[in-house]
Design a protein around this nucleic acid. Structure first.
Lengths: 270, 270
DNA sequence: ACGAAATTGTACGATATGGTTCATTTGGTC
DNA sequence: GACCAAATGAACCATATCGTACAATTTCGT
C-alpha cells in the first residue's frame, strides 16, 4: 500500500504548471508514489503494486529551481499524459510514442518507470480507483435520515460519474478488456466493498425505522445507483447520436440527476 | 507526404463499381444504402454506404453444391468472424490478420468486400443495430395495460441486452471511439427514435388512465430502462471482480431482472 | 461459346509500434 | 572531490499490422 498521505510527496517542481489537462479537471488528487521495487522482476511476476518506481524522491524542502532531474515530476507528468491518452483512445488504441511525444520527457522514461505499456495503464487505472475511494470516504451520512442519506449518496455518485468522465471511460476500457488488469491488482480488489457496506447500513436503518420496505439486497441498490449514474456518461456519445440528447448539457444533467435520485428512492420506499 | 496512401484513389482493378448493393446482408438484414459512392471518394468523405459489395448474389434457387465461388457465404463468414473478433478485442485491439485466419477465406477477401478494417467494423456495427430494431418491431404492447406494457418493454429490453452481450459490447466500443462510426452511418441515425415513441405512447396512455403520474419525459423513462439493462452486461467483468457478484449467473440475472422491472414501474407510478 | 465482370489465392511491401541498447549526466554521500 | 546509484537522452531494432500487386479462375449475359 502506498503511503496515501504526505501531501508534499508528489511533484513539487516546476512541472505542476497547473496544466493538469483540461478535461482531467478535478482529477488532481495526489497519490503518493509507492515503495521502490527491484530493478528487475521475473517474467511472470504480476505484482502490480503501483509500478516499480525508483525511490529517491524529491524532498519537500529542496531547492527546486536548481534541479535538472525530477523523478516525481517526470512520473507525474507521464501519468497525466498517459491517462488522457488512454481515456481518449483506449488501451489498444493509445500509442506509446504518442504519449511520449506529449510528455516533457522521452519514451525511455516511460519504460524506466512503468516497465511497459500495460504497466503504465495499470498504474493509471489504480490511481483512478484510488481517487474515487478516497472521496467516497469523506461522505458522512450517519446524521441524515435514511431517505436523505440514500438520496445524498445517489446524488454524490451521480455527480462523481458526471464530473469524472475519465474514470468512467477507464472503467469501460477495463471492461472491454474483461477486467484483466483489475484482476491483477491486489490494490483495487478489496475496495468497493465499502460502498456496499455504506448502503447496507443506510438501508437497514431505513427498514428498522419503517421508511424502507424490507427484503432488498443492498447490492441491488448499489447496482441501480451505479447503473443510473454510469450509463449517461459512458454512453454519452451514442445517446447524443441516436437521439438528439446531449447528457453533458447542464440542464439535461440536472433533470436527469433529480430523476435518478427520485427513482432510487422510490425503488426502496415502503 | 508524397504518396500518402489514399486507398480510394489507388484502387487499380475494376472493383469500386459503386453498386448500390441494396440487400448486402443477403438473407438476414437489409440495409438501404444511401447514395452510391462515386468511383473515387475524396479523402475526407465518409460515405459509409454498407461497403462496396459486388452484386451478383446467389439466388436462393440456385444449386449451391455445384459452386466453387460463394460471394454471400464468404461475406457472411467474414462478418461473423469479424464480429466475434471486434466484440472480443475492440476495434483497435482486433487484428485483421487474426480475423482473416479464422475465416474460411483470405485477408484478400476482407479488403475486397469491405475496403478496410473500419469498413468491416462499420458493417458489423450496422448489422448489430439493425437486428435490435427488427426485434423491437415485433413487440405489440397495444393490448396491454400501461403498467403491463411498460413492464413487458422493460423486461424485453433487459433480456435483449443480457442475451446479446455482443451488441452491448459493440456499443461500448463505439462509445470508446466517441460514436464516430455511428455518426458516419446514415442507416443507423433515425433508428432508436422509435423506442422513444413506443414509450411515449404507453406513458401517455398510462397518464390518461391515472396509472402513471404526469410530468415525466419519455426520454427519461427510456434512459432508465436502458441504463438498468445495459450496465450489468457492460460492466459484468468489473462488477464480478470488485464484488463477488457474477451477473451472468441465472439466479442473479433473474433477481436483477425482476428488480429492474419493479424499479421502472415504481418510478412512473401515480 | 465468348468476352466482360466478379471472385479469389499467394506473396509481398511500407510503416507503425512496442521495446531496447549504449552512453551520459546528475545528485547524494562520505 | 571521488564514487555510485539514480535518472535521462538519442538512436536503434524486430516484428506486428494494415494494406497491395499480380495473376488466375469462375460466372454471367448475349
Amino acid at each position: 500500500m502506498p503511503d496515501a498521505k504526505d501531501p508534499a510527496v508528489s511533484a513539487p517542481l516546476g512541472f505542476r504548471t497547473g496544466k493538469t489537462s483540461a478535461d482531467l479537471a478535478g482529477t488532481t488528487v495526489e497519490i503518493a508514489s509507492p515503495q521502490a521495487s527491484p530493478l528487475q522482476r521475473s517474467a511472470g511476476e504480476h505484482v502490480f503494486a503501483a509500478a516499480n518506481a525508483p525511490k529517491q524522491m524529491a524532498k519537500p524542502g529542496r531547492n527546486a529551481s536548481s534541479w535538472s532531474q525530477d523523478p516525481d515530476g517526470v512520473r507525474r507528468n507521464i501519468l497525466d499524459v498517459a491517462r488522457a491518452e488512454f481515456v481518449e483512445k483506449g488501451l489498444s488504441g493509445a500509442r506509446v510514442d504518442e504519449i511520449a511525444a506529449k510528455t516533457k520527457t522521452s519514451k525511455r522514461m516511460i519504460y524506466y518507470y512503468f516497465t511497459d505499456k500495460e504497466g503504465l495503464y495499470r498504474t493509471v487505472l489504480e490511481e483512478a480507483y484510488s481517487q474515487i475511494r478516497e472521496l467516497e470516504r469523506t461522505l458522512d451520512l450517519g446524521a441524515l435520515s435514511p431517505p436523505d442519506a440514500l438520496a445524498t449518496l445517489a446524488g454524490f455518485t451521480f455527480d462523481y460519474h458526471a464530473d469524472h468522465a475519465d474514470f468512467v471511460r477507464l472503467v469501460m476500457i477495463e471492461n472491454i478488456h474483461h477486467a484483466r488488469h483489475l484482476k491483477m491488482s491486489g490494490t483495487i480488489s478489496a475496495l468497493n466493498s465499502s460502498a456496499i457496506d455504506m448502503i447496507r447500513e443506510i438501508y437497514e436503518r431505513g427498514v428498522a425505522g419503517g421508511a424502507f420496505r424490507a427484503g432488498i439486497d443492498p447490492m441491488n441498490i448499489h447496482l441501480t445507483i451505479s447503473a443510473l449514474s454510469f450509463y449517461n456518461v459512458s454512453n454519452r456519445a451514442s445517446i447524443a447520436q441516436v437521439f438528439a440528447h446531449d447528457m453533458a448539457v447542464p440542464t439535461m444533467r440536472a433533470l436527469r440527476r433529480a430523476s435518478v435520485i427520485d427513482t432510487v428512492i422510490r425503488s426502496v420506499r415502503a
